[in-house]
Amino acid sequence: MTTQVSQPASPIAGPIERAINARKDKKLTTGTLGLIGLVVVLGAWQIAASAGWVDASFASSPVGAVRALVHMIGTGELWPPLLSTLESVACGMIITVVVGIPLGLLIGRSNTLYGLTEPLVSIMYSVPFVVFLPIIIFWFGIGAEARLVIVVWSAIFPLLINVIAGARNVDRHYLQVATVFCAPRLLTLRSVTFPATLPFVLAGVRQAVGRALVGAIVAELFMGNAGLGYVVQTETSGFKMDDAMAAIVVIAVLAIVLTRSVAWIERRFTFWSSSV
């Protein structure tokens, strides 16, 4: 009798259940397909290396890279460069957020400032920041400050662009509601302008984190003495391709973890927004 009562997955499911199931299936297929793609490429690489079609000491191999990674974790060699890179990204992001968000709000809320800075910001956003690398080295040397400058340089423009867009796009109607109900300035700022801008700010932070990691790695590749980028650089020079590949795997995982966590924060705080 009870089995008859509790039958949520009946074959005559309503349209809503069917839609949910279809969506689940679709999600599953994309995930599975992605996995298959990854396995095929890694498999081909491994076979090519094992069969001697390519020189494994040149091309490394998935198994070799994993072995090197396990070794690096075992000996603890992995942690100092990982922490060093994380530190660069963290310091860079703190500066980027502390400077970028207020600056973006200021520029976005003032038509004059916006007019003055808009072309500059767009140019700086569009030009690949690496072209400034030699100049930054010339100005700041190759020390820790120079690396920080590169991280901030690469991260701040996507954040600025987003925050400015957010501050400029606060819906007129929202502000009108605040005016009609005689909301004090501070309440308007805190309860209207800030939440209205938040989705843009968080989207900017998500992009900035990705760019900050790129900046940190590039800085380490060219002028570092520590960090994952430096590991890739030195291990490649030392002809230890497995170790270089292992460091790249760590960078990839780091990139995914960082952007996914910001995306999670975004969903957590701007769940009400239909545009995100």
Binding site: Y174, V177, C182, A183, S273
Partner: peptide, 19 residues
């Protein structure tokens, strides 16, 4: 012109809060 980040009750409360 409801605030999308406030729920129904919080939207209705807005005027009182402003006052």
């Amino acid at each position: 012109s409801l605030f999308p980040w406030r729920n129904v009750v919080q939207n209705i409360e807005f005027g009182l809060k402003a006052h």
